[in-house]
């Protein structure tokens, strides 16, 4: 059981760490690639979105690879 717990917490930790890295990338560079509307949005909004980016980065990362044109 302790092994399962250690693995689970390790995976959760890595997920969050990648999320935080991606979150910083989002704040400083990636926001407009993910969503063109972010260009005209106040910078402060990015901080508000930060926790959600950490939580859901696997769903957002594909938009950076293939940015929406619209």
């Amino acid at each position: 059981m302790k092994l399962i717990i250690a693995i689970f917490l390790g995976v959760l930790g890595i997920y969050c760490a990648v999320g935080v890295l991606f979150g910083f990338y989002f704040i400083f560079f990636g926001a407009e690639k993910i969503d063109p509307f972010m260009k005209e949005t106040k910078k402060g909004v990015r901080l508000l979105l930060f926790p959600g980016i950490v939580a859901t980065w696997p769903f957002l990362i594909k938009n950076v690879v293939n940015p929406k044109t619209k």
Partner: peptide, 20 residues
């Protein structure tokens, strides 16, 4: 609850897609 609260902004509704 964290995942829900942190994605409550419209930005996520659009960028995660409404289904997700």
């Amino acid at each position: 609850l964290f995942a829900m609260a942190s994605t409550s902004h419209d930005f996520f509704l659009k960028n995660l897609s409404p289904t997700v």
